[in-house]
Lab assay of single mutants.
Amino acid sequence: ELELEEVDLYRMNSQDKLGLTVCYRTDDEDDIGIYISEIDPNSIAAKDGRIREGDRIIQINGIEVQNREEAVALLTSEENKNFSLLIARP
């Protein structure tokens, strides 16, 4: 049973970094989820404190993420200042 949490992050300008590194968990081929492998200690996500390494990203801004490229594109989008992440953890 996964616990879901919605985390809203806000950046003042497009130079601010959310600070999330995303990856696949390669140990299970059936698991195509996108996971947070690293959080930059000086980033918006780290200061917010709710997202943890190992969390799975389900949605970004209401869009279900299917692959790492999509997640990276959404997280690094210059147009977005508000990010709503739906994350899951066991």
Rank of each mutant, 00 (worst) to 15 (best):
Q15Y: 09
E5Y: 13
R11I: 15
R52V: 07
S77L: 08
E6P: 15
F83E: 02
E53D: 06
I58H: 14
E5W: 04
C23F: 07
E3I: 15
Q66M: 14
I44D: 03
S77T: 11
G54L: 04
I57V: 09
L75C: 03
E70F: 05
L9H: 00
A45P: 02
K81S: 08
Q59A: 12
L20Y: 01
G19I: 00
L2P: 10
E5F: 13
E38I: 11
D40I: 10
R52M: 10
G54Y: 05
E64D: 10
E5V: 12
V22K: 01
I32A: 03
E53Y: 06
R68Q: 10
I32S: 05
D40P: 06
Q66Y: 07
E78H: 13
E69V: 06
L74T: 06
K81Y: 04
D27T: 15
N61K: 01
V72H: 12
N67E: 12
V22M: 10
L86M: 07
R50A: 02
T21Q: 08
L75Q: 02
I51L: 07
T21F: 14
L18M: 02
G19N: 01
R25H: 14
I34E: 01
T21W: 05
E78Q: 11
I57K: 00
L74W: 09
N67F: 05
A71M: 04
C23Q: 08
S77G: 10
Y24T: 11
L20R: 00
D27R: 13
D27L: 13
A46M: 10
D40W: 11
E1K: 14
G33E: 14
E6D: 06
E5N: 14
E1S: 06
A73D: 11
L18S: 01
E29K: 10
A73F: 06
I36N: 00
I51T: 05
T26Q: 09
D8W: 03
L20G: 00
A88R: 13
D16Y: 06
S37T: 13
A88T: 06
R68T: 13
D16H: 07
G33I: 07
D28Y: 09
P90I: 04
I36S: 01
V22Q: 02
E79Q: 07
D48H: 06
N80Q: 11
T21E: 13
K47Q: 11
I36W: 00
I34N: 13
R25T: 14
A46L: 02
I87G: 01
V65Q: 05
M12S: 13
E53H: 06
E70D: 07
I58E: 12
Y35P: 11
M12G: 12
R89V: 01
I87Y: 02
L85A: 02
L86Y: 04
S37G: 08
D8G: 14
Y10A: 10
I44M: 14
L18F: 02
E79L: 08
G62S: 12
P90F: 02
L86W: 03
K17F: 09
V65K: 02
I63Q: 11
G49T: 11
P90Y: 03
D55W: 02
Q59Y: 03
E78I: 09
E78T: 11
P90L: 02
E6S: 12
A73C: 08
D8V: 14
D28W: 05
Y24R: 06
S43E: 08
R89P: 13
I44N: 05
N61T: 01
P41F: 08
L18T: 03
K17D: 09
Q66I: 13
N13I: 07
T26Y: 10
E53T: 07
R89W: 01
E78Y: 09
G19H: 00
I58T: 11
L75N: 01
P90H: 04
S14W: 04
E79R: 10
I34R: 01
I57T: 01
N82D: 07
G33M: 15
R52P: 00
G54F: 03
Y35L: 12
L74A: 12
Q66T: 11
R25E: 07
S77D: 11
T26S: 14
E79T: 10
I44G: 03
I36P: 00
N61Q: 08
F83D: 02
A88Q: 13
S14D: 13
Y10S: 15
N67W: 14
S84K: 13
S37L: 08
Y35N: 13
I60C: 09
I36C: 08
Q59K: 15
Q15F: 06
N82F: 10
R56S: 14
A71L: 04
L2F: 15
I51S: 03
Q66F: 12
E78L: 08
I87L: 12
I63D: 09
N80W: 15
Y10W: 07
D27P: 04
I58P: 00
A45W: 03
R52T: 07
A46K: 13
L86K: 15
R11S: 03
L74N: 13
S77V: 11
L75A: 02
N82V: 10
E79H: 08
